[in-house]
C-alpha cells in the first residue's frame, strides 16, 4: 500500500494517525529480523522504533531520532509484517516532516539543491560528455528547466515556509 503523505493534516493529527496505524503491532520483531540496516547498525531497530512512536508525546520528539533517516527503503519489514503495518511508509512520512523543519541530512539537502538546479541528481560534467561523444551517444539536455523549477517551487514542501499544497 502506498499513499501520499497527508499534507493537509496538522502535526497532532498526524501523530494520532501514526499511532493508530502502528497500534496493531504485537512486537513479534519480524521487522527487525528482516531489516537490512539493523544488521549493520544496532540502534536502528524497527520494532523498538515502532514502540517509541507509540509512546511519543509529539512529532518533534520522534524527529529527534536520527534513525528517521536510516531506513534504506528496502520494504522488507512492510513485506513481512503479519499485522499489515507499512513501516516503510511511516518512515517516508517522518522524513518528509523532518525535511519540513530543515532536519534532513546534509547530503539530502545537497541532492535537493542539485535536482532543483539541474533537473538531475548526477549533474552533467565535461568528462561525461566526452565519454558520451566517444560512444556516439547524443548530448544530454534537460528541456524546460525553468518550467520544472517553477513546478518544484510551487508544489514542494521543503525550503519554504509557505506550502502551496497545504493551502488548497
Amino acid at each position: 500500500m502506498v499513499s501520499i503523505v497527508a499534507a493537509q493534516q496538522g502535526r497532532e493529527e498526524i501523530l494520532d494517525r501514526l499511532k493508530r496505524e502502528l497500534y496493531v503491532c504485537f512486537e513479534c520483531g519480524k521487522c527487525s529480523g528482516s531489516c537490512v540496516v539493523f544488521r549493520v547498525k544496532d540502534d536502528m531497530n524497527p520494532r523498538l522504533f515502532v514502540s517509541s512512536i507509540l509512546e511519543a508525546s509529539s512529532i518533534d520528539e520522534i524527529l529527534e531520532d536520527e534513525n528517521v533517516w536510516s531506513c534504506a527503503i528496502c520494504y522488507d519489514c512492510t513485506e513481512r509484517c503479519d499485522q499489515g503495518i507499512d513501516f516503510t511508509h511511516t518512515l517516508f512520512e517522518l522524513k518528509n516532516l523532518s525535511t519540513e523543519i530543515g532536519k534532513q541530512p546534509q547530503a539530502i539537502k545537497e541532492e535537493l539543491a542539485t535536482l532543483h538546479a539541474t533537473g538531475r541528481t548526477s549533474p552533467i560534467n565535461a568528462r561525461a560528455l566526452k565519454k558520451r561523444e566517444a560512444l556516439d551517444l547524443p548530448e544530454i539536455q534537460v528541456p524546460d528547466l525553468e518550467a520544472i523549477q517553477g513546478l518544484i517551487d510551487r508544489v514542494t514542501s521543503y525550503g519554504t515556509s509557505e506550502k502551496k499544497v497545504k493551502e488548497e
Binding site: V5, W69, F92, N96, I108, E111, L115, L151
Partner: peptide, 8 residues
C-alpha cells in the same frame, strides 16, 4: 528525494 518531499 521522495523521503524529503513525497508530493513533488
Amino acid at each position: 528525494f521522495r523521503g524529503a518531499t513525497d508530493y513533488s
